[in-house]
């Protein structure tokens, strides 16, 4: 068996894969958080809960109307984005002119309400959600012969669904990045992040833009939720499990930095995975250790623009 840095190659590759998968979720979730933070100036504490709601919407669509994974991957984010826009319009907008602390408290309360509601009906044991047939099975990946010079050696088994999660998250992150950095709407969002009053004075309905952005951000969370459903099952507490780590990642990337959120999401997923190989005891805390170091060395985050 081939070893890599003293550990069996399949073990190393397996953890790397898990790291990339987690990183995919981290990236999509922290991207949504960064978008929302940019325009609303609040850390959206309801983000994890809306990720969970995304997974539940997919589950309920299947249970009650027989809508399967692929349509749900589009529908659930759209439904949750709609819900998010209602939340923004009717709960958060009245708080715009107050201290941002109020918005933060509101989203925190909302997270508790959402999670509590689903716990009430579904407990905490989790509902299975199966992998779509088209993505069942796995690929056996071999070490390429030009590397070893010998016969092909087994490297890892790559489940098709997990490969898809990575690809889907890369696509969504890239598409969102292009939307923000390369389109007219994105330019308006960036401008409104900097000087909302001036953008309004140019005739742009900034409050509507904020509502739209919140919808987009939580729609991304719901997309991650649907992606996660076949891997982690659908569970009312799935959001609160992941969101603390995602907050740390947003801090590491730099609050409000779009590219930073994506890159640090994948990066920290991988760091976490590799830590699991070499020092498993530390794998649960490594992200927070990185956060502490980044905060000391670069308080604005790896990709943040100053304080």
């Amino acid at each position: 068996m081939i070893e890599f840095l003293g550990v069996p190659l399949p073990l190393f590759m397996g953890q790397l894969l898990i790291g990339l998968i987690n990183g995919s979720f981290y990236a999509v979730l922290s991207l949504g958080l960064a978008l929302i933070f940019g325009l609303l100036n609040i850390v959206n504490f309801a983000h994890g809960a809306l990720y969970m709601v995304g997974a539940f919407v997919a589950y309920l669509l299947l249970q009650f109307i027989g809508i399967g994974y692929w349509p749900a991957l589009i529908l659930a984010p759209v439904i949750v984005a709609g819900l998010g826009m209602l939340i923004e319009r009717f709960l958060l907008r009245p708080l715009h002119d107050l201290d941002h602390l109020y918005g933060l408290l509101l989203t925190f309360g909302l997270a508790l309400v959402l999670e509590g509601t689903f716990r009430h009906f579904y407990g905490v044991s989790g509902m299975p959600y199966s992998i779509p047939d088209s993505l069942a099975g796995a690929q056996r990946l071999m070490v390429p012969t030009w590397l070893t010079g010998e016969d092909p050696v087994f490297m890892m088994a790559l489940p098709n669904y997990r490969a898809w999660v990575i690809v889907a998250s890369l696509i969504v992150c890239t598409a969102t990045w292009i939307l923000i950095e390369r389109t007219k709407l994105g330019a308006l969002m960036r401008a409104a992040t900097e000087k909302p009053d001036l953008v309004r004075a140019f005739g742009v309905n900034v409050p509507a833009l904020i509502t739209l952005t919140y919808g987009l951000g939580v729609g991304l969370a719901a997309f991650a939720g649907v992606l996660a459903a076949p891997i982690y099952s659908v569970n009312p507490i799935m959001g609160s499990n992941i969101i603390i780590v995602v907050f740390a990642i947003v801090v590491i990337g730099g609050l409000g930095s779009i590219g930073g959120a994506i890159v640090s999401g994948f990066l920290l997923g991988v760091i976490e995975g590799i830590t699991k190989v070499f020092y498993p005891e530390a794998s649960n805390v490594v992200i927070f250790v990185v956060m502490a170091i980044v905060l000391i060395v670069r308080p604005a985050g790896l990709f943040g623009k100053g304080a």
Binding site: R200, A201, F202, N205
Partner: peptide
Amino acid sequence: MPAERVAR
């Protein structure tokens, strides 16, 4: 009026 309507 809010600013965006004045602008228009």
